[in-house]
């Protein structure tokens, strides 16, 4: 058995350029996690169902387990690590409005699905800041959570809408929507 030789892939992650030598068979999720050490993106199923690995690629929420790293050539990738608003005055990591709403509404327990939930919700609200509860549930229905029963998550996303209605907050301006419509 012989595998194709490694290739160099270049893309932007959370506003910074990245160049990584990868096997062509390496998924974007594994590339982010293991080559770039951005371990906030989680891998829950590796077959595109659970949504834990959701990142935003060129403005669209994507399952990074279903995308090869080499396919990200030239793309702009946003991950959970870029969602905060940087450091606050005390030097502590500050939560963006969506993250703070998740905390306020107890929208997470074990935290494993959380990065994917946040990226999906961020992509949704960036495009549809007025999304209603049904639309939020529909958009999140491709992200599985086993702890919360989703109730706090939906409340949190609805509660974060004003921050998006005033213009896309946190990280880079997100322009696109999500890759699923239910």
């Amino acid at each position: 058995m012989s595998n194709p030789p490694p290739r160099t892939v270049r893309f932007t992650v959370n506003g910074k350029p990245a160049a990584v030598e990868v096997e062509p068979r390496l998924t974007l999720a594994d590339c982010l996690r293991h080559a770039l050490r951005l371990t906030g993106t989680h891998v829950g199923c590796e077959h595109g169902v659970c949504g834990a690995c959701t990142v935003i690629v060129d403005g669209r929420a994507m399952r990074s387990c279903l995308m090869l790293a080499v396919q990200a050539e030239g793309c702009t990738v946003e991950t959970i690590e870029g969602l905060g608003t940087g450091l606050d005055e005390g030097g502590a990591e500050a939560l963006g409005p969506l993250q703070a709403a998740f905390r306020r509404h107890h929208a997470l327990q074990c935290g494993f699905c959380t990065p994917g939930m946040l990226m999906t919700a961020h992509a949704l609200l960036s495009r549809e800041p007025d999304a209603d509860a049904d639309r939020v549930r529909e958009a999140l229905s491709g992200n599985l959570c086993r702890c919360t029963g989703y109730i706090g998550i939906v409340e949190a996303v609805l509660d974060a809408r004003p921050a998006y209605q005033a213009g896309a907050p946190g990280g880079q301006p997100a322009t696109g929507g999500i890759d699923r419509t239910g």
């Binding site: 996690r33 906030g40 991950t79 905060g84 993250q99 998740f102 905390r103 494993f112 990065p115």
Partner: peptide
């Protein structure tokens, strides 16, 4: 716990 989980700083075993 939420501060680390919400910002991608959780340390699950594969991390």
């Amino acid at each position: 716990e939420d501060l680390r989980f919400l910002s991608g700083r959780g340390q699950y075993v594969d991390d």
